[in-house]
Design a protein around this nucleic acid. Sequence first.
DNA 1: ATGCAGCTTCCAGCAACCGGAAGGTCAAGG
DNA 2: CCTTGACCTTCCGGTTGCTGGAAGCTGCAT
Lengths: 135, 135
Amino acid sequence: MNIGDVAEQSGLPPKTIRYYEDIGLIRPKRGGNGYRTFDGVDVHRLAFLGRARSLGFSIEECRALLALYADEARASSEVKQVAAAHLEQIDRKIAELQAMRATLARLIHRCHGDDRPDCPILADLSGETGAAPQG
Amino acid sequence: MNIGDVAEQSGLPPKTIRYYEDIGLIRPKRGGNGYRTFDGVDVHRLAFLGRARSLGFSIEECRALLALYADEARASSEVKQVAAAHLEQIDRKIAELQAMRATLARLIHRCHGDDRPDCPILADLSGETGAAPQG
DNA sequence: ATGCAGCTTCCAGCAACCGGAAGGTCAAGG
DNA sequence: CCTTGACCTTCCGGTTGCTGGAAGCTGCAT
């Protein structure tokens, strides 16, 4: 199989597949013409990568997961640990975004949004929060 | 004021301040020695940027917000529009993360996490979701 | 022979900086 | 006067995970 077919089957663009080879996530063989030649195992690996990436795992986490997947003597606790760490990361990110969201929504709510220049959003960003300048 | 003092006052690292000058967000003057010389307006702008960035606004959104802030004839509706668009973006990101989180948490929950290699997380990533291969 | 799709490599660039090297400057201390 | 050390300057490269494009080769159909 050439890269185009694999792209279709795995759902990953050819550029991404080449990139994954570059960083050592896959090792397709080469034909006499220099073209990459993919087999079923490669496609499977790429699909694995696509799913892991879509769950937000970083490339390095994907590398670790692939290694665990290939290791038949793995302990599931190792996999779980990687996933749990990632989950924590996601939770932190969600919390951060929700904090932003809360502030932003409050400011937007207070802005009348008409023709006048007066705007609590800009007021907040400019630092006019409670502490009025003296004089 | 030199860049170090401004960094302390604005809470932004010197590197970031130089970068903001590079991309035209601020235009500090220069002293005879080549050092950047910041005045109160610069510090105020930087603090504005710091707050806007901490709310997740992109650099380009910050640029727009600064322009609106400087424009005394602005309509607050323009500001509100920028903020509302950003809020939508945040909501999309939160939704995406929550979807990841849900899948991930379910997989983690189902993984016993012991010494055995059997692992539903890897099973899911490898594509063994319901559809068993024929044969 | 020609054309075009598909493959190859390599280089640049996105966001928003951070780290470090090489070198100029300034204030203090001996 | 000279040194030390903290500051400042510019420039280059790296980060994450790709994506776009250029230049050139291959493969297949006409």
